[in-house]
Design a protein around this nucleic acid. Structure first.
Lengths: 207, 207
DNA sequence: GGCCACGCTAAGCGCCCGCTCACCGTCGGC
DNA sequence: GCCGACGGTGAGCGGGCGCTTAGCGTGGCC
């Protein structure tokens, strides 16, 4: 989890773990298509076309279109969870850790918006088994944030009435960035991350 | 805009303006189907079936499947905007108005979750003209919230650095309720509305 | 009672979907 | 130089999609 990977410029194509090369190109094409049009509105011909291959090539590397979504969702959630964990488990006060966690989580959702959009909003298109696996990962994300907030409350740093509800709201706020963030808009991922870190510290009543 | 309409129990079917009866039944069926599976994954046969009609019946009342989505989106946005306006334009301090606006807006997104889900998350499925119309309504929603925050800042009630950014975050927080709210979950729409009103007042640094 | 207007259905058209299959070019090992 | 393994293609299958059309039952009006 290097800092280079965590920055949001997108210089590092973050699908290096997907091999062989053709499988990665298909997966990147699928991410773009799913993010633009949604899973159900995307055709396998469109994905293959973006990857510069014939429709049949897709089925050499993936059993079905759904498997593509599953792989994207799995890898994306792993990445998001890793980023959050790195911030949550560093040294520092609860306030510092929460600001860091929200900042980096938001930077990822804004900077890698296409991936985040698929990961966060196409969950329902997965079958029951795959969905269950992803839901388990989401619970870990929730637990990570909740723990920071609980630490802050215990240390007297935060003033929170409803820890679970506030955790939900904080995550909801961060995740929804993937819906509205516009690459051509006036804000950089860094700016949104800083703004959101401040807003979340206010939400938890950080002193 | 009676208070009865604004409450979230769902006793009042809010599609009374849609006539004749068959057209309303089809529209209600479409809302349910779109909310469950998404626009693209919903078939016209499914909608007609839920309304107890043959597939062809749909086309007597609506030109296309997209027109159904457009009508739903238009009516839903009108409703959401009306609810927000009623709260935003009442008498009271900026703090009271903001709490009221967030509370009622969130209660609507939670209590009428199926409608809100379609309205907020299926925008991209509309064609360019219909989308432009809806986007204009969204700008009015944004302007309404921004005005309360500006009023509060001007009156010295709020402490906000970035008014546009904070407005965006507040709306994002409210809208995303439609994604995660679960009718069978532990929270009522009223509870979420109250929690969120408190969180938003913290975000704007209300004294 | 005759008749039309209207709401609806049964059947189906043309299209494009996800996916398959028979086949092919290339490249490393002997 | 031949051969199998492998990654890829062209063509196309079965099916379900959005939508249309011909025709039918019924209720209101004279």
């Amino acid at each position: 989890m290097s800092t280079a990977e965590e920055t949001t410029g997108g210089e590092v194509e973050p699908w290096e773990e997907v091999t062989p090369d053709a499988a990665r190109r298909l997966l990147v094409a699928a991410v773009e298509a799913f993010a633009e049009r949604g899973y159900h509105a995307t055709t396998t011909r469109d994905i293959a076309g973006r990857a510069g291959m014939s429709p049949a090539a897709l089925y050499i590397h993936y059993k079905t279109k759904e498997e593509l979504l599953h792989r994207i969702s799995r890898i994306g959630h792993d990445k998001a969870l890793g980023i959050l964990r790195a911030a949550a488990r560093r040294e520092g006060t609860a306030k510092e850790r929460l600001a860091d966690a929200v900042g980096s989580f938001v930077r990822w959702h804004a900077g890698r918006r296409t991936t985040a959009r698929v990961v966060q909003y196409e969950l329902d298109a997965l079958g029951p088994d795959a969905r269950a696996e992803i839901v388990a990962l989401r619970r870990q994300v929730d637990a990570e944030v909740r723990r920071i907030i609980e630490d802050g409350v215990a240390a007297g740093e935060f003033d929170v009435l409803d820890v679970r509800g506030t955790t939900l709201a904080v995550l909801s706020l961060c995740i929804d960035v993937a819906r509205w963030f516009n690459v051509d808009g006036p804000r950089t991922p860094e700016e949104v991350g800083a703004l959101y870190a401040d807003l979340v510290l206010r939400m938890v009543g950080a002193r």
